[in-house]
């Protein structure tokens, strides 16, 4: 494999890791909000969170460009105030991957929270635990299996992200050309097929690995959270 292929693989791993690291904490917050709170407009929030699952990725990418592009409403402000540019940068690829994988992270966390016996939290309070400590010492550890599964699903989804990424961040070699966009780029090139095939194999291997690690970790987390 050549330099360009390695670059694409490394970039994909970096983008996917960042997307999960940045996306999981807000996903946990949204999952808590949806699982535990009742407020007007909850259905709308729920639908918005799940939107990336059903809307074509290109559409999400285009929407991102409209909002956060250099001439987008938010993007212009970000640039003027902080000099931050997301579109056509690797950070933009992270954002695109994060938006697309967000619902996949939220869902298992929310299911995990729903499965917690809230009477355990009552018990903790009668033992002298203030609410924040109940959350840290009871709720969070029992949510761990969901967080692990969500993070790994999000990682796998980010690794394969194509449509939103190429629309919002483009396919700039060394900057935003991830695994998927590199495969696509090689396929467009004459004599690019062997390189594309190499990357396809790497992609399959990475996905398999992620799934196996996910299975292992979620079993560990289950055992940790529910004893055995």
């Amino acid at each position: 494999m050549g330099h360009e292929e390695f670059q694409a693989i490394a970039l994909s791993l970096k983008v996917a890791a960042c997307s999960v690291l940045v996306g999981t904490p807000p996903a946990l917050a949204v999952a808590l909000l949806l699982a535990r709170c009742r407020f007007p407009g909850k259905t709308l929030i729920d639908a918005l969170v799940h939107l990336p699952l059903v809307v074509p990725p290109v559409v999400m990418g285009y929407l991102l460009l409209l909002c956060l592009g250099r001439r987008g409403a938010l993007g212009e402000w970000l640039y003027d105030q902080f000099g931050i540019v997301l579109a056509f940068r690797w950070t933009g690829a992270v954002l695109a991957a994060m938006v697309m994988s967000f619902p996949l992270i939220v869902r298992p966390i929310r299911l995990s929270i729903d499965a917690i016996d809230r009477r355990l939290e009552d018990a903790a309070r009668t033992l002298g635990a203030p609410r924040y400590w109940v959350f840290l010492s009871v709720t969070l550890p029992l949510t761990l299996p969901g967080i692990v599964v969500g993070a790994l699903l999000g990682f796998a989804r980010s690794l394969g992200e194509f449509g939103a990424t190429i629309t919002f961040a483009g396919s700039i070699s060394g900057e935003t050309r991830t695994l998927s966009s590199a495969i696509y780029a090689f396929m467009q090139m004459p004599n690019g097929d062997p390189a594309a095939l190499n990357l396809v194999l790497v992609s399959v291997a990475l996905s398999l690995l992620a799934l196996m690690v996910s299975e292992y970790l979620s079993r560990r987390a289950q055992a940790l959270a529910h004893g055995s």
Binding site: D117, D122, L127, G128, P130, P141, L144, H226
Partner: peptide
């Protein structure tokens, strides 16, 4: 007075031990 400040510990019908 909030529950955790009252410190009237409960033993419930189902033991409610922390599984983790």
């Amino acid at each position: 007075v909030p529950v955790h400040v009252r410190r009237l510990a409960c033993v419930f019908q189902d033991a409610r031990l922390f599984p983790h």
